[in-house]
């Protein structure tokens, strides 16, 4: 029987890039939480800083992407290594887009400015909580894809959470549209808040994409966990 020898330089490179994607995901989670905090507290200065610092996340994401391409070039990976590395490129892009949505929330905050909020936030904090959990769970499943059973379960559990956030988004939109149609002066801020809910829903979608990539890393099948939900337009 042939002895398992490992592949030192590839294994080290994979470990290093795995660490980087974990750091990138922690940074993105922090930016996301911060953007919501600055929104609730009307901390415009903080929002402005988050927008300016988005470039750092973009650069780090590109760094992960470049490193993955270099590993593919130098190590000629196959099978699970290849699936992991190509997926890493997608995941770093998904994280970068999540940071963009967070930055988008900050931009909306600046647009609303000092104007008092027209609504007490009930559903949006719930959406935020779910989106944060989905992001955390999806990246944790991706980084622990070697534990196939639990990673696979975590990835599939995200489907339920995604349904929940879609439903909340739809409710926020319907409630605000109803109020705006009665009081046109609410239209401007109402539209902005609909955009906040939309961004939260998209963050959850991106996390679902990460979960789909995790299932691909595990099984080699390109799974689609959730079809595009257009029930809002019904």
């Amino acid at each position: 029987m042939r002895k398992y020898q490992g592949r030192k330089s590839l294994d080290l490179a994979l470990l290093e890039i795995d660490t980087k994607i974990t750091v990138l995901s922690s940074q993105v989670q922090a930016v996301f939480k911060d953007s919501m905090k600055s929104f609730y507290n009307k901390d415009l200065k903080r929002s402005q800083k988050i927008i300016e610092e988005d470039i750092l996340i973009n650069n780090f994401s590109k760094e992960v992407e470049t490193q993955a391409i270099e590993i593919i070039r130098d190590q000629a990976p196959l099978a699970s290594d290849m699936r992991k590395l190509t997926s890493l490129i997608f995941v770093s892009q998904e994280l970068e887009r999540i940071a963009d949505y967070s930055s988008g929330i900050c931009k909306i905050n600046l647009k609303i400015g000092d104007e008092p909020f027209i609504t007490k936030f009930e559903k949006i904090p719930k959406m935020e909580k779910i989106a944060i959990k989905m992001l955390k769970d999806s990246i944790s499943a991706f980084c622990n894809a070697s534990d196939m059973k639990s990673a696979s379960k975590a990835a599939r559990d995200l489907i339920v959470q995604d349904d929940e956030i879609d439903h909340l988004n739809s409710q926020v939109q319907k409630d605000l549209i109803k109020r705006m149609s009665r009081a046109p002066k609410l239209v401007k801020q109402g539209t902005y808040i609909i955009w906040i809910a939309h961004n939260l829903e998209r963050i959850a979608d991106r996390s679902t994409n990460i979960a789909e990539r995790t299932l691909y890393v595990i099984s080699g099948d390109s799974a689609v966990l959730t079809p595009y939900d257009d029930s809002f337009y019904d």
Binding site: R2, K3, Y4, Q5, R7, P77, A79, R83, G220
Partner: peptide, 19 residues
């Protein structure tokens, strides 16, 4: 065989971990 081998030994061989 090169994308998603079924046998762990094939996986280890094509990924360069045994040889």
């Amino acid at each position: 065989i090169f994308g998603n081998p079924k046998d762990k030994r094939t996986e280890d061989y094509v990924t360069g971990r045994i040889g």
